[in-house]
Amino acid sequence: MSFFLPVLLRNLLKGPSTEAFPFGEAITPKKLRARISFDPDSCALCRVCARICPAGAIQFEKKPDGLEFNLWHNACVFCGLCALYCESEGLHSTNDWHLSHLQSEKYDLVERATVKFQKCTKCGKQKMPAPLPLMAKLYPGLPADEIERLRAMCPQCRKAETAPAEGEPS
């Protein structure tokens, strides 16, 4: 009896332990891994994510002016590997788990964006984008305007700028 009374009292004071959802907000941890978000401005088109994804949820499709990123949420297993391996911070796990949908919307649940090829500002050749998060990692300590100038160039011109051959002006 003496063991039981404190438990009873505590349960009376605590109120129901059932979450309010779906009649109210659900408790969602900040770090819950759910819907993956994609930022086309931070994508270097390296396609590591498509290679690493265990569920084959990410696919790239060729377009005339770039590559189209496709992530089908109905295949994603929320493992977060793509976000872990993306050096360019183009992919992030969010805690948005409201993904249930009617069958008619099955193939609409796609994260889709075209990442455009760019033109090198020096030689004018078509090149892959060099997003800011990646370039800031590659050239730590460089001033922001210098990084902006370098990332608008193709890898060859960038190489020539940052490591000039002997005798060439830098």
């Binding site: 959802f21 659900a26 759910a34 788990w97 993904l99 249930s100 069958q103």
Partner: peptide
Amino acid sequence: IDVNVPGCPPRPQAIIE
């Protein structure tokens, strides 16, 4: 199928939804 609940596994709240 009428309703899909994606997730691996979906959390209980998602199933309730």
